[in-house]
């Protein structure tokens, strides 16, 4: 057993772990952070993506199935469960996934959202191609990625509009209210495609 001290979603945890324990299993099974999931055993699918600080304290996306818990000693980690702000306000990327229907079964979603947050930290105005390549470490079987790409574009616009930081924003007043069914993504954010309407 090795003693590790890891800050996860703002809380310090000290635990004794077997050296072979993967970070993702430590998060899920010891710390109860079951929002982060395991989708493969070869670090292809990216469902387990979390943000983890590097030696210089800079948080970046990693696959928590390809990190040993002992390697995360003294590091700081943000999972999907720590992404929302106080009062459970959604992060712009979370909100954009909802607004743009960027998820179906939702299993890849925690990893996909964390990967998108990581991408936007580095490039706040990615092109469609840059988004596609930036998410190449994450597999989704439901969406064909189209609405994921759309969501990341929309989130990047919102983050830039709100001053370039990825601070959690207030929940959308548009989602979930009865009389604005076609609210959500601004049309200008989805060039070449619009939400299809029945052809008369």
């Amino acid at each position: 057993m090795t003693r590790v001290s890891i800050k996860v979603d703002g809380v310090e945890y000290e635990d004794d772990v077997e050296p072979r324990t993967l970070l993702v299993h430590h998060l899920r099974e010891r710390l109860g952070k079951v929002g982060t999931v395991v989708g493969c055993d070869t670090s292809n699918c990216g469902a387990c993506t979390v943000l983890m600080s590097d030696a210089d304290g800079h948080q970046q996306g990693v696959k928590s199935c390809a990190v040993l818990a002992v390697q995360a000693d003294d590091r700081e980690i943000t999972t999907i469960e720590g992404l929302s702000g106080p009062d459970n306000t959604l992060h712009p990327v979370q909100r954009a996934f909802h607004e743009a229907h960027g998820l179906q079964c939702g299993f890849c979603t925690p990893g996909m959202i964390m990967a998108a947050v990581d991408l936007l930290e580095e490039n706040s105005d990615p092109s469609e191609q840059e988004i596609r390549e930036g998410l190449e470490g994450n597999l989704c079987r439901c969406t064909g990625y189209q609405n994921i790409v759309r969501a990341v574009r929309a989130a990047s616009e919102e983050i830039r509009r709100s001053g370039g930081d990825a601070e959690p924003a207030a929940p959308s007043p548009l989602a979930g209210e009865g009389h604005t069914p076609d609210s959500g993504l601004p049309r200008q954010s989805v060039p070449d495609e619009t939400i299809p309407q029945p052809v008369p």
Binding site: G46, T49, V62, A66, A115, D118, G134, G137, N138
Partner: peptide, 9 residues
């Protein structure tokens, strides 16, 4: 090389 997450580690 690989993907963003792998390149980080």
């Amino acid at each position: 090389v690989a993907d963003r997450q792998v390149r980080h580690r």
